[in-house]
Simulated assay, not measured.
Amino acid sequence: MSTSILRDSTTSLYEQIAHQLLEEIQRGDYEPSGKLPSEAQLGERFGVSRVTVRLAVGKLSDDGVVERKQGKGTFVAAKQVRHGLDALRSFHEALLLQGLQPSMQVLSHALRPVPEAMRGLFEEAGDCLLLERLHVVDDEPIALGRSHLPAELANVTWAEVEHQPIYSILESITGLAVTRADLAIRAQEADKSLAGALHVKRGAALLVMERTSYFADGRCCDRTTFFIRPERYAFILSGVFKSNSAN
């Protein structure tokens, strides 16, 4: 790796170091672990003080290029997941389409009375299945999903279908296709339970996506609330929008 920096440049030493490290990150020089050399190693390499190195790494951290993990070092920041809102697809499928290798862990599943707020969705149903699953990417939790599903899914052996999307399970059990979903997005602070599951601080801001899915006959088949770490996730809506007013 080149270590050239210009001592008499109008660009500060730490900015030059940050730029060089950025180029190396973009080339993939630190894959597969993503770990950067220590501050002492970088200081020796560039012939600068730890303070200068710390400023360079701090700039990369502020720009979202690297992340510092206490007691472990500095790592290339994980790529942000982009979830398109213009197609009907499961949360898990959205991760797969980006070339990621996501996994899911079933945390709990049990029959529960239909919540009062959802009585209008699950008409004439006394109970529904409450399912909690943790979505993991790069060995880190990215989202927790809480799903209210038809009671007939209670007999599913969840250990055998842990990594299957909800839509696939619904269609295989009922023989009906999911044809529509309504989405609502908001923000919420992480309570103690969510903070523990997602490895964030209590009170940290989370993205919340509430998805209500329907069969072709109009019956609700899924109400899932995803609690998402926002630094790893972005919602994208692509399309052409036409103004109603004349220019």
Rank of each mutant, 00 (worst) to 15 (best):
A154D: 11
Q41E: 15
F235N: 11
S9C: 05
S147T: 08
E24T: 00
R119F: 00
N155Y: 01
E116D: 13
S172E: 10
K69V: 12
V156M: 01
I25F: 05
V137T: 06
L36C: 11
P165I: 01
A159Q: 10
C220M: 01
T52Q: 09
D182G: 08
R112L: 01
S172Q: 12
L170E: 03
L194F: 02
G239F: 02
L21S: 06
S245D: 05
G218H: 01
R146Y: 00
L149M: 05
M104T: 10
L85E: 14
L183T: 06
S172Y: 00
A177L: 12
G203N: 03
I173A: 07
L176D: 10
V156K: 02
Q16D: 08
F46V: 08
S38R: 07
R219E: 09
D191M: 03
A197E: 03
R229P: 13
G64A: 05
L194S: 07
Y214E: 07
A205P: 01
D127W: 03
A154H: 04
S38H: 04
F46N: 12
H199F: 00
P37H: 06
D8N: 14
A187H: 06
I5Y: 07
S193A: 13
G126K: 06
E189S: 15
Q16H: 08
V48F: 07
A78K: 14
F241A: 13
F46D: 09
L129T: 05
R223C: 06
L237H: 09
E67K: 11
T224V: 11
V51Y: 03
L111I: 02
P37T: 06
A56E: 06
I169T: 12
D182S: 09
I5L: 12
D191Q: 05
F91C: 12
A234P: 04
L60I: 07
S61E: 15
Y14F: 11
R211S: 09
D62M: 09
Y30I: 07
G73T: 05
T11D: 07
A204R: 02
E67T: 11
L129P: 13
R186P: 01
D222I: 00
L96S: 10
V240M: 03
A78S: 13
E123D: 12
R186H: 06
G43V: 03
A117N: 06
L22G: 04
A205N: 01
D182C: 02
C128L: 03
I17T: 09
L95A: 13
A195E: 04
K59S: 14
D138S: 14
C128E: 02
Q188E: 15
V178G: 09
Y167F: 14
L121P: 03
H135T: 08
E162Q: 14
V200D: 00
H83Q: 11
V51S: 15
L21Y: 02
A181G: 10
R133C: 13
S9R: 05
S172H: 02
L36D: 10
P32N: 11
T52H: 04
T11G: 01
Q26R: 15
E189N: 12
H148N: 11
D62S: 15
L42V: 10
L129R: 10
A205Y: 00
T3V: 08
L6S: 14
M1A: 12
G73Y: 03
F226P: 05
I166L: 15
L36Q: 10
P113W: 00
H163M: 00
T74R: 05
E140C: 03
S90L: 04
Y30N: 13
L153D: 09
L149K: 09
I236A: 07
G120V: 01
